[in-house]
Nucleic acid binder design. Sequence first.
DNA 1: TATTAGCACTTGGGAAAAAGAAGTGCTAGG
DNA 2: CCTAGCACTTCTTTTTCCCAAGTGCTAATA
Lengths: 330, 330
Amino acid sequence: MLTERQKEILKIIVLEYIKLAKPVGSNLICDTLNCSSATIRSEMATLEELGLLEKTHTSSGRVPSEKGYRYYVDHLMELKKMSAEDMLKLQLIFHNNQLQYNDCLSESLRLISEMTNYTSIKLGSTSHNNTLKEISVVPISEDNLIVIVVTNMGYVEHKNIALPNINLEDVKKTVNLINNMIVGTPIDEISAKLEYEIKPIIANYVEEHERLYNAFYNVFNNFANKNIDVVGKKNILKHKEFGNIEKVSQILDKFDDDNIASLVENIQGNNNDINIFIGKENNIDEDMTVIETNYHTPQEDGKIVVVGPKRMEYDRVVSLLEFIKENIER
Amino acid sequence: MLTERQKEILKIIVLEYIKLAKPVGSNLICDTLNCSSATIRSEMATLEELGLLEKTHTSSGRVPSEKGYRYYVDHLMELKKMSAEDMLKLQLIFHNNQLQYNDCLSESLRLISEMTNYTSIKLGSTSHNNTLKEISVVPISEDNLIVIVVTNMGYVEHKNIALPNINLEDVKKTVNLINNMIVGTPIDEISAKLEYEIKPIIANYVEEHERLYNAFYNVFNNFANKNIDVVGKKNILKHKEFGNIEKVSQILDKFDDDNIASLVENIQGNNNDINIFIGKENNIDEDMTVIETNYHTPQEDGKIVVVGPKRMEYDRVVSLLEFIKENIER
DNA sequence: TATTAGCACTTGGGAAAAAGAAGTGCTAGG
DNA sequence: CCTAGCACTTCTTTTTCCCAAGTGCTAATA
């Protein structure tokens, strides 16, 4: 259990280090706390013993340890409201009626990255709410046709499939069948329905049912229900803790679409709020902090994630995410 | 006019510098050329006077100047055929029947970047060959509908438009009209046709023709006929000439989608072959070289561009691009 | 008992000096 | 025209030196 003064000191060190990225010495603090630097030093020593502070070398000032950041986040951070400026810019997005839901979200991400110099990520997945609205087919050459799938939430996906020498009538029959029988089915159940309801029927009606069935099956099976969006990768270059090419390289590799998708997917907060993973607590990079939240809209469920250095403006990011989550869910 | 020996020396220096990025001294060359280093030195001095070589400081070895690279590219470079390995990997792509035209191209880009550690870019534009094949509309809620446009080449684009309280019958009438009257029109002429052929008619037939017309007009007007694809941005980190964060930052900014699209668009070779722009010759970055070629397929016209440091493996990149251009155009 | 002033000590960083490596230009002789 | 030899230049690396920042400890103080 920390004394009030110890908390105060820890907090000052965290905030100061976040601001300037330089180890914090006792002199800086004794000004604010009206006591001598010697006193502060002995308190700092205690905090270091508790594992909340670290030194970069024997005679340096103190730097928060991971545990120190954690303590700050859990007990000391004040959730101040957003700055007027941040607020204003975000509201411009959400009050812009021109923008569709999806554009709002990606605009917000862009804005977060721009304002904070961190990297923001969205991983969305078309929710169970998405059901098949309509499927249509446009033949574009002898051998190729385009299959277009629309969900009730307005997702559209299309695929070019090659079906040499297929009978167009058969295709139309199949499409009609699908439109009549399985419209309204949740996207993730369609494969099953195709198998058990459509396949048996076209097996009788349609000549080349085998090939045709497989083609349609593939269309739905590959329905991209995960989409990832990473904004502001370049921002890591702006933080001095990542001042060498190797580190930057390593992090940028992690940010590659395939990589990051699975990493982000595995981030699992223990509540539905905003979750913070500091350094080794996260699976992206032990020198970074990851802040995550989930959102649920009629169209999709997903995560918004902000990644930055451990000395991140925690309070600011949390309030930004809160605001966005709240607004996107309406 | 250079003597044979001078050419030989220039060539060795260029190749050596490309390989190791270290200024080349006279000793290294006299081994290969069977003459003393003093002789080489005096030749080097001549080449420097001609502006083909440079020194980094008074007593350093020589480095090719931009003019030197240019001379190499114009007169000394041998177009060797691709290495077996490069060839094999590329052929795997083009002989894979699973892959559609578009996937082939992006796979090739990915491969080039991976093999060479440069950045490759594709800027494609749906060619004039693309004509409207079909337009369809799917209403997904009271106020929203999805408009889907398909071209004869199989491009599909869709847009969610909000039309509160619109009469669905009117929408259908308009869609039918478009499908009957302007199918077959090249994409880039559709806006005009809408204006002069469709607008006057629906003005009579359809109640809210104003709003409806505008909505459709927007769909076609925003038809994304340029698509850009940048692969391997991270690769600049791998070259020592870009060893500091500022330079990397600056280049990565240039690679941002919007930026690079217009930059690439302005690259104009003077022939239909492969064009090389060294350093200040290009508009992307004066420390880099840009190699470009155009391709023309039934589906689209476009450019493939490779960007890397000036000490680039010119011969290799040229042969890679030649191969891809040739294969993609079939 | 908690705080403070004072002081010796440690470390990193930056400047200056020293030593070494790489390579040049020039000259004189074959 | 070529080459061996040598003085010279510049960069790079290493070493040395010194200063600034900041600590920990001790003894005195409120």
